[in-house]
Design a protein around this nucleic acid. Sequence first.
DNA 1: TAGATTGTTAATCGATTAACAATC
DNA 2: TAGATTGTTAATCGATTAACAATC
Lengths: 211, 211
Amino acid sequence: MKRKKGIPEIVVERLPKYYRYFKGLIDKKEKVSSREVAEAMSTSASQIRLDLSHFGGFGLQGYGYNVKDLHDKIGSILGADRHQSYIIIGVGNMGVALARYPMFDEAGFVLDGAFDVDPKVIGTEIGGIKVSDVKELSGYVKTGKSCVAVIATPAEAVPEISDILQEGGICGIINFAPVDIYAKNDLPVQNIHLADKFLTLSYWINSCKSC
Amino acid sequence: MKRKKGIPEIVVERLPKYYRYFKGLIDKKEKVSSREVAEAMSTSASQIRLDLSHFGGFGLQGYGYNVKDLHDKIGSILGADRHQSYIIIGVGNMGVALARYPMFDEAGFVLDGAFDVDPKVIGTEIGGIKVSDVKELSGYVKTGKSCVAVIATPAEAVPEISDILQEGGICGIINFAPVDIYAKNDLPVQNIHLADKFLTLSYWINSCKSC
DNA sequence: TAGATTGTTAATCGATTAACAATC
DNA sequence: TAGATTGTTAATCGATTAACAATC
């Protein structure tokens, strides 16, 4: 998932964290220095300044950064200030939770469709959206109404779903199934493997007495 | 979250991915070479070999790696082969989905408690576990019955919950609330911010025509 | 044995940190 | 003006890749 000017992927991945931090600061402070930001996020002031400088000069020498201004600018860079329509494929426990997760609204994501294979689920409503048969997925995607697809199906379903989405011309995929999707044509994909996080934690915990 | 010998954190974070890959391969192949693994995961054979060599010589020159053997060894390193008791704090949409997420079972995590503030939720059952009042959390944690706590509360509740957990002597925290927890005393913490992943994707999507 | 493939060391690449001139 | 703090370049650090001797 590399592209766009010379901005390192790792810097882009830190932007949402900055965005969250500045959002929480808007009502509390007018300005912040890179040193203050660094302290709050356990990192270095150099990193804050270098990261932000990739997108232009947001600060002012001798003053720091204006909180509201920076929040808005990062939001705009991330595209949090515009609406993006998305669909959910797989309306199980995780799919339902994701459909109702309020944070996605705040990021500008609006649910427009939901798909499942289970006849018992098809036709029910989730987040104000009626669940469709996954057979209709291909047709829907080709209409271009939604730009992001969230996959919350079992692992087995992923290859087929992934093909349908890519052929249909989706603009981005967030995959919660425990299989990695390596997309063609530089299509942006976020593979989120929750069980992996548990296992990593399990490794670090090995030395804990009470476990 | 740095500790344990000289193994880089970034290497540990890749282990669960290897573990997943080898698990899927057990029934299909007896051996693999680092080159094959690298191809399947879009990385380099050097990285596979160097990563694995941190934990000892798992391979055999001229042969490669035995799939079953490697799977078991990585599982053991990660602690996936033993049971770890965990609790969930915050039984909302996300908490419920996590309690039912089958992948956690596979990683050896067993739910032993659930806590919430909402009187309507307290007393109900989730994953075979009765939801307790969060007031009882402190007392429960101090019994040492569970080693991991999963936080799925709103952001506001996090500082207090986090303090209770750390004082009570929990061994690890997985935090799904949209605030970072920086724990004291090297306590392992996984901060998982789903909305951040959406925002990062949103950035990469900016150039997509149909959005 | 000859071919294959590991484990490991050295070379390269990229990311983080330190330093400081520019300037508000 | 003097003090503060940015933006940026240079120095350091760490991670990835390449190369190859060891050996199955």
